[in-house]
Write a protein that binds this DNA or RNA. Structure first.
Lengths: 220, 220
DNA sequence: AGTAGCCGACCGAACGGTCGGACGGTTTTC
DNA sequence: GAAAACCGTCCGACCGTTCGGTCGGCTACT
């Protein structure tokens, strides 16, 4: 078996990470190839030994993201659980994954549209397939009566839009843990679509995350 | 009274509109000043007669947006109504305004971060003030018990993130009317935060917007 | 000897921005 | 009332810089 897990990441992966971070901070067009190379500790010429073009760099970032995230939500969507629970789990998974690799996912959400036409077709198809899992869950829930009879297309765009917005303001150095945000957002998604509240009253002492207005102090 | 309403918009406004459209489509850094000028029917040199820099162009687009949208939601936030109704109205207003001037608002949401540091401070402050209206409504609702005891900061980011995502996929040429989207999204926002469903059962025949999966076929 | 990785030097094109002046319509001056 | 001064608007030509990308060659490991 050639090469087990390394301590130092490969130059190639380092380039991808630097590119993702810079694309996220400055945008695809606002970032120069020389900057990316410099952030990875090499020169622009050397970068072109690893990647054919700036476009290829972006393409691979998106590919990484989608190939890691899609299987997880597809498994959740196919699970033998009530739609509401699948929705909660999918939204939670989505947010966790998004924060875990925030730079790359931010590129997926924000910079994917700058892909050259040929690569963009592939990208859009894969993104659609990802979103399909959410539509499937919602459609199941509406059909079974578990969820309110909303427009499935509209509602899944709403849920994904809500969850995706996390990339804009979340900072791991802040006071909020990944799990806190993920569960709260999943909860909002489920409750916005549930047909009826589970019970009239209790959820007795529930850890409630009350107050604290200025939690997510937004940068940029 | 010098000059009543014109039939042809001023060159200046034409430049702002062209810039907003191109910034939205290609990003701030992906759009050249010459492109903007050309789209407005003049040359790059002439553009610099109306605006001091590319940055100033972006700054004015954001200023236009915030100065039009803020008073509306602040009035709603200050109205003498239950928090849930104010939330519904604010979200509805937000989405309507967003679609009405989609190009400029998209710049506000996506390209604002590319403002030069000095202008960006002002921009962030005004955006915060806008968001403050939503936090105020949510805080009122939580305090009065009308809404669930969620984190106000987190929930308002969620609501705004959900609503803002509309700029990414809505197209006025599509099958969905502005009002349909606005009301549906406002409904999702309210229901995700309401403490209890208004009644156990009915909402009898309610126009339900059912089905139709592939409603918002996403471009880009 | 081969090759993976890296680099300095370079290329043409495009960038944001400047400059001096042309054009036409008003206002001022004699 | 004609001439002169003015002004908003526009343009072509140009500036220095930076861009994405290429190329030939150097090094080090196998």
């Amino acid at each position: 078996m050639l090469e087990s897990t390394r301590v130092t990441v490969s130059t190639r992966e380092q380039l991808l990470r630097s590119a993702a971070r810079l694309f996220r901070e400055q945008g695809f067009h606002g970032t120069s190839v020389a900057e990316i190379a410099s952030a990875a500790g090499i020169t622009k010429s050397s970068l072109y030994h690893h990647f054919a073009s700036k476009q290829a760099l972006l393409g691979e970032i998106l590919e990484d993201t989608v190939s890691r995230a899609t299987p997880a939500v597809e498994a959740i969507a196919a699970a033998d659980l009530p739609a509401a629970e699948r929705l909660r789990e999918a939204a939670r998974c989505h947010v966790v994954e998004l924060i875990h690799d925030q730079d790359k996912v931010a590129c997926f959400v924000e910079e994917g549209r700058y892909l050259a036409p040929e690569l963009r077709e592939v990208f859009v198809a894969k993104r659609d397939r990802y979103e399909q899992s959410f539509r499937r869950i919602l459609a199941d829930g509406v059909r079974s009566g578990e969820l309110r009879p909303v427009s499935v297309g509209l509602a899944s765009l709403a849920v994904l839009g809500m969850c995706n917005s996390v990339v804009h303001w979340y900072q791991s150095s802040g006071p909020l843990s990944v799990e806190t945000v993920a569960e709260e957002f999943a909860d909002l998604a489920v409750k916005s679509l549930l047909r009826e509240q589970p019970s009239g009253g209790a959820e007795p002492g529930g850890r409630s995350l009350v107050g604290s207005s200025a939690s997510g102090t937004v940068p940029a």
